[in-house]
Design a protein around this nucleic acid. Structure first.
Lengths: 335, 335
DNA sequence: CTGTTAGCGCCTTCAC
DNA sequence: GTGAAGGCGCTAACAG
């Protein structure tokens, strides 16, 4: 049987109340009592029972890291792990556990809702939100603090805290780069059009073209799915266009990597025949052939900021509704 | 205030005990009582308080999916997500939640141990175990059922349940394939040498060479780290050897993908100049240029089997100490 | 079949 | 500063 507060108190020769005070760090305890309790706890290798504590405090000291992806796409994009890393850093500092939840079916959704309603998590952070995803709203309705990486397209999620970057502006800068190096036909590979970030990046591409006095054509847009394969396929389509595309803004680096391969498949050279610019600046961007010119996004910082938002909400503060992080263009060889 | 069992019972006009029986699916309840309780619960959108239940049942209905990786390597290898998928399938069927824990620092280890000791998880499954990892042993000592994907090298973990494949035999088959197609110098790119699976695959390579009357040379072994980049680097080393290597058994597909790139970088052709065989048969194996000949591992099944082992342990049964799944060679174009 | 009765382990007023 | 006491929401005997 594991040690309980009761047994620790007994061993230390104090009451349960005093032992509790010591373990929860209350100041109103004598130094001698504190020492004895601590010693006893160590001796018995006491660990507080989470359920008992949770029952009375009504907290679980756990936050959910929720990934809403129908596929296992999640695991192949370092973007996510980097967000997680940043979040972990902040959360660990507050003694908060992360539980990782993948939500793909409606059954998963109900389970998560029950999980949260049952008090298993104190807050939730969402990454990779598609248009119809309603979990942030549902958890918010339960009173669970929430934060999202990038805004949600779901009506009703508009008033929930968001951390993101200016995706449109980033896309503008990348597209301008293509224009400035003299590309005549600048196409784009977009992300899933049910995701806010993808829409904004597509918008930015349009805006930059318009700025330059060009008319963004529908056929110059190939929709991808943020995966390497998707980028590869989309690029193949664009390369069939005539007059030939000689510049492409790709909505994330993973797809850009696939696009690079498609160009190589045709025996064309990057950037001479086709210039390519990506978005994210994940590690792979430096390893591609040639290295990617891309819009740098402070991904780890994104995770940290989201976690801070949650910590604030949990502490009763009103978290900022919208934090916008900065991006900048990293020029390498591909454009 | 969320509904409690008390309020549900009141609304249904029964005692707490009866309400509890209905909600936990006990058979000893009249049909009419059952209906009334269920109706009341739905009406009040009642959700059981997890902490309260956990406190008395001493279960949390949650299992930990623990990844022990110093880097974020985890997220770039679809192997893990596939195991997770399989496990999720089985666990969800038993109404068990998965909490995902990444352990990289000693602080993380202590936190996980407290998490488990505090009763937050009922069982734990481990993937990607390095030599010095002692968490399986520590959790086992706490009485938490455990299962590992691949055996642990840690002394003391020898008696814990393992699910794996015959890595050595798989490697033998792959290496034989290289030998049979006439390769004169067959080298290998191994995984991290502090992991059981990597060691066994290396062993298999040695055994196949010995079988064929050849002497495995130390310089024909390049150690990788199961990443694309690692495979790329290792292959570069092997390609500097003379007389030239014309066949390579690579310990996983991710590294094989990197190896393929290294071969292409030198303007050599696969499989004509260098034949390459991988291990795992993850989706990328079909997408490489050329497609990979590789040892197929039933990864999703691995996850399912591990979950089943845990479910058995949690149910008080003695889980099988060692389940070995089958592999087979999938011949594609690379070897 | 159902209600009554005890706690599960902990935190938190409330008196001292 | 410290102890006593109550109760968080639920399940599990134990009687009826």
């Amino acid at each position: 049987m594991p040690a309980t507060l009761e047994s620790v108190a007994a061993a230390a020769g104090v009451s349960r109340a005093t032992a509790s005070r010591v373990l929860t760090g209350s100041p109103r305890v004598s130094e001698s009592a504190r020492e004895r309790v601590l010693a006893a706890a160590r001796e018995l290798s006491y660990v507080p029972n989470a359920a008992a504590r949770s029952l009375v405090t009504r907290r679980s000291d756990t936050v959910a890291f929720v990934v809403c992806e129908p596929e296992e796409k999640f695991f192949s994009d370092p973007f996510f792990s980097t967000v997680l890393k940043g979040a972990h850093h902040v959360l660990a500092a507050h003694s908060l556990q992360i539980v990782f939840v993948v939500v793909s079916t409606d059954e998963d959704r109900d389970r998560l809702e029950r999980f949260a309603a049952g008090g298993h998590v104190d807050a939730a952070m969402f990454v990779s939100l598609h248009g119809s995803e309603d979990m942030p709203t549902r958890l918010d309705a339960l009173g669970v603090p929430v934060v999202m990486a990038g805004r949600s397209l779901h009506p009703g999620a508009a008033s929930l805290p968001v951390v993101d970057v200016d995706n449109a502006q980033g896309a503008v800068v990348a597209t301008r780069r293509l224009l400035e190096r003299g590309c005549r036909r600048v196409a784009t590979i977009s992300g899933p059009t049910d995701m806010a970030g993808a829409i904004d990046r597509l918008d930015g591409w349009r805006r930059a073209l318009a700025e330059a006095g060009r008319t963004p054509a529908d056929e110059d847009v190939a929709e991808g799915d943020y995966t390497v394969e998707g980028g590869h396929r989309a690029m193949q389509r664009l390369l069939d266009l005539s007059p030939p595309v000689d510049g492409v803004f790709v909505a994330n680096d993973l797809m850009a990597a696939g696009a690079l391969r498609a160009v190589a498949d045709r025996g064309l050279a990057v950037p001479d025949d086709v210039a390519v610019a990506g978005f994210d600046d994940i590690p792979i961007a430096q390893a591609t052939q040639p290295p990617l010119t891309t819009v740098h996004q402070p991904i780890e910082d994104l995770g940290r900021t989201m976690a801070q938002s949650l910590v604030a909400s949990m502490g009763g503060e009103r978290a900022p509704l919208h934090v916008r992080l900065h991006t900048h263009l990293v020029v390498r060889a591909s454009a």
